[in-house]
Design a protein around this nucleic acid. Structure first.
Length: 566
DNA sequence: CTCCACGCCCTCTGACTTCT
DNA sequence: AGAAGTCAGAGGGCGTGGAG
């Protein structure tokens, strides 16, 4: 049995040598779709990108790493190709990773996935290996796993401690190593490869999740960067996937390092009709006029936030995300903030997302005076909190829906943990309101990611409550414009490379003109691209907007500031 | 505005506790 | 007894705000 498996995967690997990429892709694609469609957690609609191209690009890289004698190239003769994937927040990047991992598994090529958050790592891990539902008996559980056709379970280095032998045994047969993006975890993998000649000879690919956050600062190397450098040197991956919604720092670094990339190696997720993205953001309205947070005067903020709360909390099934406050404890922290809001709106449920986990503040009054209502007991609350341990925010929202009904408005407070990674949707509930005020040192990418928490793929069950195809977003005026411009910039960059055949360096040069709608750094936007200390400078030109056609935020600034001066 | 130091956040680690 | 889960302390990283 074992030797059968060994010969069969060597046969499969030989196909990389003997077959043309196109033919091989044509053979692999139907197998892929059979495997994924059988697994009920995936639908055709989950793939908002060119699956075939992902497979072809991946196959090409694998072919390049073959030595021509039925084995793999080793050492320095091999250069690592890079592929970029992304485009918009909450738009199916996970499935890009899943396709890549499936392909690697098919050809028995190992993979390392680096993810930014523990929760993020865990949720991708679980998407590939959905945990058996409790009520299922063990035979169906096994059935579900077989359907995934992932014979080797991914190894999660986040959280669990594993002995080297177990890791080695699995890596030898193409396992996936999941790890957080901390220097220690990365070094740990490097050490594993360095210590063992057999492992060192294995072909590996690297998937870097939220790839832009791996670049930290221009001059001083951080632990993380040093660990990454030595990882590349030791493991010598044959392919590196950079996956992120905010890819601009990644392409700018590639330009800086004089790396080129062909446009076929940039995979953008497509915006389907069921995707609600930054284009659908609208500022809250007062007397028929847009409302923004005043960047110069913080006193207005409370009033503007109340406007959003009042609008949200009278709507059944609303979900408000509040990302304004870096502190957790103390009188100005998110816990205090939540309590203050709930005192004013006792029919609302609140979740607080912090490093401590997810905390629920249940509503103390019903939504309507006529509703029957029993406040939640302390014991029940304690039990719920126990269930939240290690779970995603979406799981907690699901629990709120179950315990208080979908009608109960929900508000979620957080900061650091709401800037990247997690999505905030349940089966029935999606974000309807967002308040986002990040500190002025935070980069453009952080803002785009934070606002991206309010973007989502609509499913039919959401339509019952949220017919409106918009999200009310209260933020700083230029952050509003930047958030909407970001995906456009990436799309225009890609178009320049694809339609006009420009190189990345040319497309990012000072001669290139981008549309005003793609302007991620409108006049007055002081935030940096990438980490502040990375000191990235975007030199491209943006066309001037036609009169009155500037972003809603810029227009508001001009009108409001104009009035103040007058 | 820039620089620097403080304090907060967040993950890791290892020890302890509970469950099987 | 071993596995799995929980907790507290430590260290690194980084945002923020004060000082110049």
């Amino acid at each position: 049995m074992a030797s059968d498996a060994a010969t069969s995967y060597q046969d499969i690997q030989r196909k990389l040598d003997n077959m043309d990429t196109g033919d091989l892709a044509a053979e692999v694609l139907p197998v892929f779709f059979n495997c994924f469609m059988e697994n009920k957690t995936c639908k055709a609609g989950d793939f908002n990108f060119d699956v075939k191209r992902v497979i072809v690009q991946n196959l090409d890289a694998l072919k390049r790493a073959r030595d021509g004698n039925g084995g793999w190239k080793l050492g320095t003769e091999l250069s690592c190709s890079e592929i970029l994937a992304g485009g918009s927040t909450q738009n199916g990047k996970t499935m890009v990773k899943a396709v890549v991992l499936w392909i690697c598994n098919y050809f028995k090529v190992g993979s390392v996935v680096l993810s930014t958050t523990k929760r993020g790592t865990r949720s991708l891990f679980e998407k590939l290996h959905p945990p058996a539902e409790e009520e299922k008996d063990s035979s169906t559980e096994r059935g579900t796993r077989h359907k995934l056709k992932m014979p080797v379970p991914p190894i999660c280095l986040a959280g669990r401690r594993l002995d080297q032998e177990t890791i080695k045994k699995n890596v030898m047969i193409s396992a996936t190593l999941f790890a957080n993006d901390t220097a220690q975890k990365i070094t740990k993998i490097s050490e594993l490869f360095e210590s063992d000649d057999e492992i060192r000879k294995l072909p590996m690919i690297l998937i870097v999740d939220e790839a832009d956050s791996f670049y930290r600062r221009k001059n001083k190397t951080t632990q993380l960067e040093a660990a990454m450098d030595s990882f590349i040197a030791i493991v010598r991956p044959i392919l590196r996937w950079n996956v992120s919604a905010t890819l601009i720092p990644v392409v700018m670094h590639m330009k800086q390092d004089k790396k080129e990339i062909d446009c076929e190696s940039i995979i953008y997720t497509e915006l389907g009709s069921n995707y609600l993205g930054a284009e659908s953001f609208v500022p809250p309205q007062r007397d028929g006029r847009d409302v923004f947070l005043n960047p110069k005067d913080k006193k207005d903020a409370e009033e503007a936030m109340d406007l959003v709360y009042k609008d949200a909390f009278q709507k059944r099934g609303s979900l408000t995300l509040v990302i304004t406050n870096p502190k957790v404890h103390g009188p100005s922290g998110i816990f205090a903030q939540a309590e203050k809001v709930l005192r004013k709106f006792p029919h609302v449920a609140a979740l607080i997302v912090s490093h401590e986990g997810i905390t629920l503040k249940p509503p103390t009054k019903p939504m309507l005076a006529t509703n029957a209502f029993t406040p939640m007991t302390d014991q029940k609350l304690l039990d719920l909190h126990r269930k939240f341990k290690g779970k995603t925010a979406s799981y907690a929202i699901e629990q709120v829906d179950e315990n208080f009904g979908i009608e109960t408005p929900l508000v979620i407070f957080g900061y650091r943990l709401m800037i990247r990674g997690d999505s905030f949707v349940s089966k029935k509930r999606v974000p309807t309101h967002l308040i986002c005020a990040l500190g002025k040192q935070m980069s453009i990418e952080k803002v785009v990611q934070a606002c991206g928490r309010a973007t989502y793929q609509r499913s039919s069950s959401h339509y019952n409550f949220h017919e409106e195809k918009k999200v009310v977003v209260l933020t700083y005026p230029l952050d509003f414009d930047t958030t909407r411009a970001y995906p456009r910039f990436l799309a225009e960059l890609h178009a320049k490379m694809k339609d006009r055949g420009l190189t990345l360096a040319k497309a990012l040069s000072a001669r290139e003109v981008y549309s005003y709608r793609a302007n991620i750094q409108p006049k007055g936007q002081l935030r940096s691209i990438g980490q502040k200390l990375d000191e990235l400078k975007l030199n491209v030109r943006f066309e001037d907007p036609p009169r009155g056609e500037e972003g809603r935020g810029a227009k508001w600034l001009r009108e409001t500031m104009g009035e103040q001066e007058a």
